[in-house]
């Protein structure tokens, strides 16, 4: 550990006493912060540890803190509940992929349209899209249920994906419009002169320049749809179409027999590991998205 910290206005070379004092402060800081960090990590760590205990140990009373033996039994049991883990996992993946692809396509096209073209009703459409932010779908889920019913899209992963896409639009359109506005249009015009259409100019010239924005939009829509709970709960009624979170909650209320905490925690681990990894690897995009969306949106 380096003791020399930023001491604006002071000297960088410390006297012996100052060094001891600074080291003591450093230890205090790490003790305090370490306890805080542990509080934030322990629930996740505990779920992971429990998930790899043998089923009997994971459900034993009193509980064990650390696994006495390692086993994937909880994961195997999870595979047999309801329609089977594979089905729910596939439903979750299908939903998230649909939402990510749909959100990216719609917001890239619209962002480009808003940034580069003048047309009637432009600010009206942009304003209405941002208005979605003010109306969280918890408040319009009932009419949405009726509208989707008329379109024959209830109890369909596709219909649910459309709803989730709609709620990603304000953030995505806003971000993509700003992304396109921040790159020079001369590049596209050169492409137009070279014989590209406006779509070709977008596809071959500008798209690669707004890739950071696309990654951010994709990341946010993936995490939101992967974690989504209320939407699938309302719009899917057929058990074989449930996503992972719905299946796990059903497990927790004893829908498939006695409540099996080991299996639940195995399911939680499967659900949270992909988003944790995505976050850790794409942290840069995630934080820039949060800041752009929250502070300027």
């Amino acid at each position: 550990m380096t003791v020399i910290t930023r001491t604006p206005g002071g000297t960088r070379h410390k006297t012996g006493a100052a060094r001891v004092r600074s080291a003591a402060a450093g230890t205090g800081y790490h003790l305090f912060s370490g306890v805080l960090a542990a509080i934030f990590l322990l629930p996740i760590l505990w779920a992971v540890l429990n998930s790899v205990k043998p089923a009997a140990e994971a459900n034993s009373n009193p509980p064990t803190l650390f696994p006495h033996s390692f086993s994937l039994e909880n994961y195997q049991k999870l595979a047999t509940y309801g329609a089977g883990l594979g089905t729910y996992l596939w439903n979750s993946i299908a939903l998230s992929v649909l939402v990510v692809v749909g959100t990216v396509i719609i917001t890239v096209l619209a962002g480009y349209g808003f940034a580069r073209f003048q047309f009637r009703g432009k600010s009206l459409l942009f304003g209405t899209t941002l208005l979605i932010l003010m109306v969280p779908y918890a408040t319009i889920l009932i009419p949405l249920f009726i509208v989707l019913g008329r379109l024959g899209l209830t109890n369909s992963v596709f219909g649910l994906a459309l709803v989730l896409i709609m709620f990603q639009l304000p953030f995505g359109v806003f971000l993509m419009r700003n992304s396109f506005e921040s790159i020079p249009r001369e590049l596209e015009e050169a492409a137009l002169v070279d014989g590209c259409g406006p779509f070709g100019a977008l596809r071959y010239v500008s798209l690669r320049l707004v890739m950071p924005g696309v990654v951010t939009v994709a990341l946010f829509s993936f995490i939101a749809s992967w974690n989504e709970f209320l939407g699938p709960l309302i719009f899917l009624s057929d058990g074989s179409q449930y996503t992972l979170p719905i299946m796990l909650v059903n497990l927790s209320i004893g829908q498939y027999g006695a409540v099996d905490y080991g299996a639940i925690q195995a399911g939680v681990v499967i659900t949270i590991v992909p988003v944790l990894l995505l976050y850790l690897f794409l942290q840069r995009f995630y934080v820039s998205g949060l800041v752009n969306g929250a502070l300027r949106g």
Binding site: L41, W226, F229, L248, I272, L276
Partner: peptide, 15 residues
């Protein structure tokens, strides 16, 4: 401190 934010609310509630 930020890690729990990406964990889904339903998953967190199950933990």
């Amino acid at each position: 401190f930020f890690l729990p934010y990406v964990v889904g609310t339903a998953s967190a509630a199950l933990i």
